[in-house]
Amino acid sequence: MICGLVSGLLGALLGLGGAVILTPLLTVLLNLPIQYAAGISLVSALSTSIVAGSRFLRMGIPNVRVFMVLSSAGTTGAIIGSLMAYHIISSGYNWILYLIFSGVMYMAMALVAKPRQHVMTALPISVRDSYVITGSYLDQALKVYVNYGVRRGGLMRAWGIMLFGGLISGLLGIGGGPINMLALYWAAELPIKVASATSNLIVGVTAATSGTLYWFFGYIQPFMAMASVMGIVIGANVSTHILPKARGSTIKALLLSIFSYLAYRMLLSGLRRGGIFVLPMNIEYITSFMVLLMTLGVLFALRKYISEE
């Protein structure tokens, strides 16, 4: 439950959703096998997605058509991914999952720390015809209606990325938020608010698919799952209250360095379980602490280039 609290807090501050942080916290600190941690974080991804998704839907931000297109890819990927996870785990290769997970964490870090981007303005009406899907939403901060469109090619690319995203989500038991954002924001070129709200809905559907499969495989322990869900909901709510005050690139650098520490520990424990590269425990602690300090230093030096959002 405390892990859920911490990860809900960190996840909402970074804008990632708690699951990416919950799984490493559970595996590294509580020494839980990765499949149980994955099951727990799937349940919590599902619940955060539903809580946030209902709020966004009432505000009318997510694009239902884009959601429909991409969730068909996401669920397919999730089925394949969780079947793959089942076979990998039951044949005793679960150290591979640790390695993949740390890779995904580094990728998520790169996404969070993206350089500042210029704000998308409303698109000219003359080029509207080349868009497959168009939509508009009311921007609360700017107090204007923003029009946007999605091109066919962008949607196709997003579909492909989403298939991969669903696969990773099923394989590792995360909601796949960072990969969704990649698909929606970079490939489909949606505005960032629409992208994150739509990604929230897609996470719900994907997590429901792989969550049921994980349940039938017996990877979800109800007691721990419910405890961490309660923690995550409280944590996420607290962080929405402190987010306006805590905004700024300094706090982001601090959180990212914690994140990199967890990713590094994940990598090492994967290597240890695979028997490829075994470090003594005390050296592992020292080096991971050094990684923490190093990323802290580097991120503070690059603080100006980290986006504020």
């Binding site: 349940v43 539903i50 429901a208 979800i220 109800p222």
Partner: peptide, 9 residues
């Protein structure tokens, strides 16, 4: 609770 969570999507 888990069933409800899965049923909503």
């Amino acid at each position: 609770g888990l069933l409800v969570l899965i049923a909503i999507p």
